[in-house]
Amino acid sequence: MLNKEKINHQPLSHLDWLESEAIYILREVAGQCSNPVLLFSGGKDSLCILRLAEKAFRPGRFPFPLMHIDTGHNYQEVIDFRDQRAAELGERLIVRSVEDSMKRGTVVLKSADESRNKHQSVTLLEAIEEFGFDCCIGGARRDEEKARAKERIMSFRDEFGQWDPKNQRPELWSLYNARSHKGENIRAFPISNWTEMDVWQYIEREKLQLPSIYFAHQRDVVMRGGSIVPVNVPLVNGEVTNPVKAGEEIINMQVRFRTVGDISCTAPVISDADTVSKIVLETATSTITERGATRLDDQTSDASMEQRKKEGYF
């Protein structure tokens, strides 16, 4: 036959393969959806996705804006980094805040110190409606949590933003189906097949900049319920969150964050890894999963993530 290649192909390295797959997924979103948005928190997973989007779409502009759902309880360093990165890229950043939903009365906290993390889904749905987004690109990975292992790369959400595990579209080959009717929504996860280790290796290879709190630093913490909890954290609005409770002793520890998110539910780990390559090493020898170590909100029950996803969480 004509044109048959007699070439001994070298397989792609696993990072090249994952990168290529993610670029492909981002381009499918751009090709299939009319009004997508990229959820960008300033965290490491979404920073990887920004690099992937550069590789997917440059020299053109991204065919979607960036959006952050801000709980108002984020680390200043991360918010600054988020803004700086969006500016460097010259891409549009939309910020919608849980505090605005609270003012509108659509988010009601059970108590003033209740975590706002799970309420992000309300604000997200409001933003989706406001802008008419038909697809949200997110940085979730299947290895993060058991309930995510069956998540599709293009995950369908109904009009209420709900994820119904029994009503997901079969996903074969790389023929992704991102179609939706008005009001419905697709969540696209380009790095579904990446592990925490892949993310760090990619950050190392691509020399990506990260917010400083990912690296070992000194911080005031207390031990609370078996977790390391940062205390007296200054907020962007000048307030201070996570006060010390009676009987707790403040310890100044060398820690880093493995995930960043709402302050109320993101705990640091003890670490002296102050460079990406040290973090790669530490990740390789870690004995605790990323979520187990650092997401206080997932520990409630084995099924808590699944429950929150059904309610419209990312």
Binding site: K4, E5, Q10, F57, P59, G60
Partner: peptide, 22 residues
């Protein structure tokens, strides 16, 4: 086990996903 595609002699196929016109 060989990784996908490394063992077949296949013809070049490039479906266009997106056209970049900045």
């Amino acid at each position: 086990a060989p990784a996908a595609h490394t063992e077949n002699d296949e013809e070049f196929r490039f479906p266009v996903q997106f056209v970049c016109r900045p």
